[in-house]
Design a protein around this nucleic acid. Structure first.
Lengths: 209, 209
DNA sequence: TTGCTTTTGTACCGAGCGGTACGGAACTCC
DNA sequence: GGAGTTCCGTACCGCTCGGTACAAAAGCAA
């Protein structure tokens, strides 16, 4: 595989990271190619050669975002118990949504929940990727039932949906400028709910961190 | 105030309702003037004469949406107890998000959580209007503390924030196509959490409706 | 009928959109 | 030092965007 020709003058992965921020802040439709190329430090033909087109770039951006910024979600799944999984997920999510060196909120929602008809696929793609994360969580909770960590009556799918809904609400709230401390407070309430719903027969201790 | 001149040939309020649907489905930036005028059955000069410009139309659309589609939220505030307020809010929200004759989700989020830099004001406007609803809820819960409905230690602001976060997460989920029954299940879990957080000393009964 | 006022439809505006043609520049292989 | 290959920068494409000029149409008052 002979690699000849003029070498690329930019770091494709670093440029992708710049694009992540632009889409994160402005959404798919709100980010113009000019915004993107300016932030990435390249011009349009380079962008098209390296990433295909705007949609191709966006999909690579989402993949990169999932790799880098959503690592906490995969880590959370490795916790020992369902409760710890939920706790890690909710708490780390709040931290990720409010990092001072990142745009507030999450790309998966900021990218676009509604689009023009011609870009409807973008919103659907993002929705599907969110639901995939929810399903992974549901599978982890199902394992917890098998392991008798969660009681037999627990509904792994419903629990995962609840956790996922809270993380999405947190993301919307974070994008509106709500502070990390305020979101953490809400995460603890949600976690309390998770415990009550997951272990319905067990008495619930008082709320609080 | 003499009303002379050629009379308007369309119902401005009915046309506004058509515009609500377009912005609800496609978001502010995803809805073009062509999309809007086609749906409203008018042409551009009529739109500009009646509503100012695209942003003016959008603000009128949001106001109309708040009047018509968010009535349930104001109704919920009139419930007798904080718990009933939260229950009415969460349950009615699910119904509103999944009406078969309406776009899925809510305009306040579908309208745009992220926008191009020149339309950043739109996202901020929507965020502010959501937070205003949350504040109304917080005031209702504060009243509940005064009335000794909620215990003295309860935090009305945090409770309102939690409820608000769940409704927003539900909206994102609904827009992704999650069914009403699935959202209702999550609402009940959240409601359970609300009870535990609002009445921390009281024992919690098992989950379920 | 004659003004006067307002709305309507058409046709158009400058600007920005996503995307590309093309020539020169920078590299490897022979 | 070509020859071949790939990338970079400029300049441009057709199209759609939000917004408007203008004249005909439709109402009122006199």
């Amino acid at each position: 595989m002979p690699q000849t020709g003029r070498p690329r003058a930019f770091d494709a992965e670093a440029a992708l990271d710049r694009a992540v921020e632009v889409f994160w802040r402005q959404g798919y439709e709100g980010a113009s190619l000019t915004d993107l190329t300016n932030a990435m430090g390249i011009n349009k033909p380079s962008l098209y050669a390296a990433y295909g087109n705007k949609e191709g770039l966006f999909r690579k951006v989402v993949a990169r975002y999932a790799d880098v910024e959503m690592a906490y979600a995969r880590d959370a799944l490795t916790q020992a118990t369902a409760y710890e999984v939920a706790a890690a997920m909710l708490r780390a999510n709040v931290v990720a949504l409010t990092r001072p060196d990142r745009p507030a909120g999450c790309l998966s929602i900021q990218g676009g929940t509604a689009c023009s008809t011609e870009n409807a696929g973008i919103a659907a793609f993002l929705a599907a990727s969110r639901l995939a994360g929810e399903q992974a969580l549901a599978e982890r909770f199902a394992r917890a039932v098998e392991e008798h960590d969660l009681p037999e009556g627990a509904d792994p799918v419903a629990l995962a949906r609840f956790v996922s809904i809270v993380t999405e609400g947190q993301a919307v709230h974070a994008a509106a400028g709500v502070t990390r401390a305020q979101l953490e407070q809400a995460a603890e309430i949600a976690l309390h709910a998770f415990a009550a719903a997951a272990y319905p027969d067990r008495p619930v201790s008082s709320t609080g961190r």
